[in-house]
Simulated scan of single mutants.
Amino acid sequence: MTNIPTDRQYSAEHEWVRIADGTATVGVTQYAADALGDVVYLELPEVGSAVVAGQACGEIESTKSVSELFAPVTGTVSSVNEDATQAPEVVNSDPYGAGWLFTVTVEAEGPLMDAEAYTALTQG
């Protein structure tokens, strides 16, 4: 099992979120990236759009399937990772770093878990 970073929180839908100074950086976990297979396309929310915790806000397409991307927090999208949209395979190679997807100015957090709880979820 991949090492799960402890400096962020996780959703049951396999997104990670790191919140600092009211801004959340969002990505998908290594577990999700491995389950998806080779990521070939990302449809991310637009800058300025509102996202609601627990609701779909985009899609990730792989060679295996298309999966919805869920917002782990409620707020306004403040940036998207254009590099990842141009080279979506970075989600597979570096999901906790260069493969981040978008940032949100946080109004409220959804139900999130720490790394220990997320590890239990994925290894259960």
Rank of each mutant, 00 (worst) to 15 (best):
M1E: 12
T2P: 12
N3H: 10
P5E: 14
T6A: 15
T6R: 11
T6C: 01
D7L: 03
D7F: 11
R8K: 13
R8Y: 00
Q9N: 13
Y10N: 13
S11C: 05
S11R: 04
E13F: 09
H14D: 07
W16R: 00
V17E: 07
R18P: 04
I19K: 09
A20T: 15
A20K: 15
A20V: 14
G22D: 08
T23W: 05
T23I: 15
A24V: 04
T25Q: 11
T25G: 04
T25W: 03
V26N: 01
G27H: 09
V28L: 06
T29H: 05
Q30S: 14
Y31K: 03
A32C: 09
A33M: 03
D34H: 00
D34G: 02
L36W: 05
G37L: 05
D38M: 11
D38E: 15
V39A: 02
V39F: 06
V40A: 04
V40P: 02
V40Q: 03
Y41K: 09
L42E: 02
E43H: 07
L44I: 08
L44M: 09
P45Q: 06
P45Y: 04
E46M: 03
V47P: 08
S49T: 14
S49H: 00
S49F: 05
V52E: 12
A53C: 01
Q55S: 14
Q55E: 15
Q55P: 00
C57S: 07
C57L: 06
C57A: 11
I60R: 10
I60A: 14
T63L: 13
K64L: 09
S65N: 12
V66L: 12
V66R: 03
V66N: 06
V66C: 07
V66W: 11
V66A: 13
L69Y: 12
A71H: 04
A71W: 05
P72V: 10
P72G: 07
P72M: 06
T74M: 06
T74W: 09
G75A: 10
G75L: 12
V77E: 01
S78Y: 02
S78M: 07
S78R: 12
S79H: 13
V80H: 02
N81L: 07
N81F: 13
E82V: 08
Q86T: 11
A87M: 03
A87Y: 10
P88W: 03
P88Q: 04
E89V: 13
E89M: 06
E89H: 01
V90A: 03
N92G: 07
N92L: 02
S93L: 09
Y96T: 05
A98W: 01
W100C: 11
L101M: 12
L101N: 02
V104F: 11
V104M: 09
V104C: 07
V104D: 11
T105W: 01
E109P: 07
G110L: 08
P111M: 08
L112E: 10
M113D: 04
D114G: 15
A115R: 10
A115I: 05
A115Y: 14
E116Q: 14
A117E: 14
Y118L: 11
T119C: 00
A120H: 10
L121M: 15
L121H: 13
T122K: 09
Q123S: 10
Q123N: 12
